[in-house]
């Protein structure tokens, strides 16, 4: 089980996250939803140590890491290497082929032998449907293909927590589905996912747990049914209605 506790982050005077706590069970698909600018991305980036929060801890089973004060590089790497991240803008290494993008961390971070690393990479790229584009450079791939390579790169690290920061927001509408299908596939395989997403239909179908975040606070949290079928909070209802996710007469704008 992964536990995030008391996460607070502000940029100067602007409080982005305030005392956010929640738990993720192994194999859970946790979706963060909420208006833009409420701290969904910041939350993921704090866990991945791309941002340093003022307060907060993360616990993997019984190993606790402070998110705010990992002074030693070793401790920070130890935390980061338990997680992996898929970015909104894909962020593939542009001078490396699809295959090299995946093997890079396997060889140089996990210290896996090159042959073995390539075997793992081929397997993961096959899984995301990119097995026939192993030697393509990112600039020769479509957005959806790049994002699938990025998913393979994250997956290959075999992370305890796989985070996705709005993985489909930068894609053309017709490319969204190939990426969502890929995410659905890896969710089914029992990977633990934490994703920020605006794709409400997808979240509703795939997420086991949904967190509605607004202005840095968790407004409501529950199973997908609870949030989408019977939201309790007024703000959750309003948000879902604006996203055309609330059917029926209980709320109208």
């Amino acid at each position: 089980m992964i536990k995030i506790e008391g996460l607070s982050k502000s940029f100067k005077d602007n409080v982005v996250l305030e005392d956010v706590s929640f738990e993720i069970e192994k194999g859970d698909v946790v979706a963060l939803i909420g208006p833009s600018g409420t701290g969904k991305s910041t939350l993921l980036r704090c866990i991945n140590q791309l941002e340093r929060p003022e307060k907060g801890t993360i616990t993997f089973d019984d190993v606790e890491f402070s998110l705010s004060s990992l002074k030693k590089t070793k401790d920070r790497l130890n935390l980061v290497r338990r997680t992996a991240m898929v970015f909104q803008q894909f962020n593939l290494f542009s001078r490396k082929t699809a295959l090299e993008n995946v093997t890079e961390a396997l060889i140089h971070v996990k210290k896996i032998e090159k042959k073995e690393a390539e075997k793992i990479a081929r397997e993961k790229l096959d899984k995301v449907g990119m097995g026939d584009r192993l030697y393509h450079y990112p600039k020769h791939l479509s957005g959806g293909q790049q994002q699938r390579v990025a998913i393979a790169r994250a997956l290959a690290l075999n992370p305890e927590l796989l985070m996705m920061d709005e993985p489909t927001s930068a894609l053309d509408p017709e490319l969204v589905y190939e990426v969502l299908d890929t995410i659905r596939l890896i969710a089914k395989e029992g990977n633990t996912l934490l994703l920020a997403s605006h794709e409400m239909d997808f979240v509703k179908k795939v997420a086991t747990k949904v967190i509605f975040l607004e202005k840095g606070h968790i407004v409501e949290m529950g199973t997908a049914e609870q949030i989408f079928e019977a939201p309790q909070n007024y703000r959750t209802k309003e948000f879902l209605a604006k996203n055309n996710m609330l059917v029926g007469a209980e709320y109208s704008i």
């Binding site: 140590q49 590089t73 790497l77 980061v80 997680t83 290494f93 961390a105 140089h108 690290l157």
Partner: peptide, 27 residues
């Protein structure tokens, strides 16, 4: 060099030096 690639390098667990020599400098 695009910040995103450096962030990606860090997110896969590279040290700052590894990210510098393996990703940033070649780029």
């Amino acid at each position: 060099v695009d910040r995103g690639q450096i962030e990606a390098a860090k997110s896969v667990g590279m040290t700052d030096l590894q990210a510098l020599f393996r990703i940033t400098i070649p780029e």
